Simulated scan of single mutants.
Amino acid sequence: MADSPHYDIRDERFRSLIVGSAALEELYRGCRWAEGPVWFSDLDCLIWSDIPNQRMMRWTPDGGASVFRSPSNYVNGNTRDREGRLISCEHGGRRVTRTEHDGRITVLADIYEGKRLNSPNDAVVHSDGSIWFTDPTYGILSDYEGHKAEPEQPTRNVYRIDPLSGAIKAVVRDFIQPNGLAFSPDEARLYIADSGSAKHEVPSHIRVFDVAADGVLANDRYFCSIDNGNPDGFRFDVAGNLWCSAADGVHCFDTGGTLLGKILVPQTVSNLTFGGPKKNRLFITATQSLYSIYTATNGVQYP
């Protein structure tokens, strides 16, 4: 395989994960800050957020891009639950919501210990139905991606919503600005990015925790660092490789945290997800645009 301008190969193993002839396709341009892509296999479409423009977008292979919801209440991260419903993190409402199959919106979390959340950022769903989300302050730092306000929570936490009771529990409290998060393919580990902010200096790293059956996290340890920009959203392929957003594109790490290579993207990448019928198409949100590129691996598909 000839080297492609789309790739920065750091380890020969990366060649088995990419398609050298695949083009980096710009599917849509016109966002102010694109985020939160989630693939709906049953509807053959991608939903993503355009936070400052107060809208959520939809892309389909046959129809291209269109507006899915506006106003969006400054939605950032999105995922799906085990019943195929859309889970969203709202900066504007400082809450986590669920869009029911009939379109109604249910609030899942907005208060913790009597105080408003900061600005929920990204979420994942465990196979037991629990919803895990990060709560940095990005959405209340200015009026650009939400409503400027002072934080009420004393720390920037990671939370778990119990699938039966709906109770909210802070599972990690010591992040500077927790951001993207994802479970390993076997759900034995939870990976969480710490991305700092304009007011904080923090190593651009991802930490990993063991996940107990009762949802308790243990054995906190360093996993990897981003060498260009900050880690934001990320996802896993079926072999356990972690594909992470960065300032210069998408960075791919093996299960031990070694950088295998990069997919180079001309705009700062915020998030990504695997989709398409075979889950081998990587959809990338990057500043103003939605991109995609086919890979030689398949993503762990969340429902």
Rank of each mutant, 00 (worst) to 15 (best):
R82E: 11
A109S: 08
L117Q: 10
S119D: 08
N121G: 14
S66K: 01
A65Y: 06
A123P: 12
E83K: 01
D122Y: 11
V75R: 10
A109D: 04
N118K: 12
G93T: 05
A65T: 09
R85I: 02
N76E: 02
I87K: 00
D102K: 05
T106L: 14
V124Q: 15
V96I: 10
A109Q: 06
E83F: 08
I87L: 08
S119I: 07
I111M: 15
D102V: 10
S66E: 03
D122H: 14
G64K: 07
E113G: 10
E113L: 04
V67C: 00
E100Q: 10
S88R: 09
S88G: 02
R116Q: 11
V125P: 06
V124D: 14
L86E: 00
R98N: 08
E113D: 13
V75L: 07
I131F: 07
P71R: 07
R104F: 15
D110P: 12
V96Y: 10
D122T: 12
V67T: 01
V75M: 11
S88P: 02
L108G: 02
L108K: 05
R104A: 15
E90F: 12
N121M: 12
V124I: 11
N78S: 04
S127C: 09
T99L: 09
R116A: 15
S119C: 11
I105V: 12
Y112H: 14
L117A: 13
S70V: 10
T79S: 05
D128W: 14
R116M: 15
G103L: 06
R94P: 04
I105E: 13
Y74P: 05
G103I: 00
E113I: 03
D122V: 08
G64N: 09
H126V: 07
N76C: 02
V124T: 15
R82S: 03
N76T: 00
C89Y: 02
G84W: 01
N118M: 11
S130C: 06
Y74S: 07
V125G: 05
F68T: 02
D102S: 09
N73M: 05
S127G: 13
R94W: 07
G84T: 03
D81C: 07
G77V: 04
G64H: 04
E100L: 13
V67Y: 02
G103P: 00
V96M: 12
V75Y: 09
D102A: 15
L108W: 03
P120G: 11
T79I: 08
E90V: 12
N76G: 03
R94H: 15
G64A: 00
G114L: 09
D128M: 11
R116T: 13
G77H: 02
N118F: 11
C89P: 00
D122S: 11
G114M: 02
G103D: 00
I111D: 15
S72W: 03
G84M: 00
S72K: 02
R104E: 15
